[in-house]
Design a protein around this nucleic acid. Sequence first.
DNA 1: TGTACATCAGTGAACGCGCGTTCACTGATGTAC
DNA 2: TGTACATCAGTGAACGCGCGTTCACTGATGTAC
Lengths: 249, 249
Amino acid sequence: MTTSTTGVPGIRERNRAAIEAEILTVGRRHLAEVGAAALSLRAVARDLGMVPSALYRYVAGRDDLLTLLIVAAYDDLADAVDAALARQQTEQPASGPRAAFTAIATATRRWALTHPHEHALIFGSPVPGYTAPAERTTGPGTRVDAHLIALFSGLDAPPLPGVDPATQELGAASLADTLQDPMFLGANLSPTELLRGVTAWTLVLGAVSSELFEHHGPDLATDRDAHFAAVVDLAAALAFPPDSPDSQS
Amino acid sequence: MTTSTTGVPGIRERNRAAIEAEILTVGRRHLAEVGAAALSLRAVARDLGMVPSALYRYVAGRDDLLTLLIVAAYDDLADAVDAALARQQTEQPASGPRAAFTAIATATRRWALTHPHEHALIFGSPVPGYTAPAERTTGPGTRVDAHLIALFSGLDAPPLPGVDPATQELGAASLADTLQDPMFLGANLSPTELLRGVTAWTLVLGAVSSELFEHHGPDLATDRDAHFAAVVDLAAALAFPPDSPDSQS
DNA sequence: TGTACATCAGTGAACGCGCGTTCACTGATGTAC
DNA sequence: TGTACATCAGTGAACGCGCGTTCACTGATGTAC
């Protein structure tokens, strides 16, 4: 369309890309400052030195901007997790899935602490009057999950002591349908592994949100890092077999 | 002041109490319908058949109304938990702390599912531009916690298999200061018990929020009750010794 | 290389909306003597 | 029991604010011939 016949993008196209990037940057800054509920198209436009209506050349409306920010947040988090995994892979090439789980959990918490509003946007209470379009958010929203699924596969952990086998069985069975999702293709995950993995991850996210939103006040732990490490250790004990190596730094 | 010399409240005083109650009722209904972020003084006044400014006779402003609603939500949840515990006490008088933990978790989830916005108000992301006055919310906010503390005391559970003792020790130590809080007076709780108890409860709240906010989409489990029961079973395994009885209904 | 036309970016004004909060006021309810 | 005064509940109008979205428009950038 606007592409010239040589395939080289013209100025218009380059400008458009530049401004789209700028909108995203400013949008993220506003999100970080005021939160999703108070995010305003007019304020973003103001900050871009534009008149509000001009934004509609680039964004269909406020909801569309929110969707862009959600996608960006998921991607940013996933990038941070990818980086943490890669770092670990080079520093401790022999480490197993449990250490990878710990690395993912730690990176997720770090990211949340540095991006509280973006964490709230994707893991907190829903933004009033907005529902995310699944076809745009599920892709980036499952990048971290894909890592976890790989880690939880083929563990064959023995039942935890003090756990009721019948209750576990029923809970696992209720997840069987989910395993049909294409996401799990080739993962070779058992319902029980999924149950225990999802539970471990729920605990991690719960701990992060609990720390961030201060459910137990600001002073629960004197050493928050140590507290979180212990929680992650417990979470890992839910999903991984007892002899699984976990190298804490 | 307005009390007559006989000690019997006059009409004014009774009217005032009645209207205060009505404000709370309408406020809660609005909260349930639109959520905390969209809660508006004007709308509440409208619904009461009053002019907006009249509300200021009863409430200092929007923030004050929010505080009232937070207190009411905590109390309502705690009432539901109390009722569930009492019911269990009569139906299964011989059941132990682990069964009580399960009852509390189940009641908390039930309450959250029937009061999603109130759950979000106290356990979700913070309301933008509002910070709760601790001196008014901590009282009702810790009623459920008090039950849990009692349950977690004196358990002396053995270390979970697959858990790193050093990591647990550090995590527990970071909670030692918290144990000085008057709330723990006479509870005889060890740092390790607190760590494992808080973690178990974090998992429960995380699971409730995850289900409510649909972090894994609407269709993670075909039988959500069974899924939740299995998660609570795993949570209990974190805090209670393996031989602790847990009677699932 | 030059001209006629189509596309696009951004402007500026306006729409209608709802919000929290203030203020001077009326009329009813209570209190003191 | 009656009267003068103080307290309180609720009214109505107004303040200034920011919001999302629409619309007709100007001027610049690109395209076709």
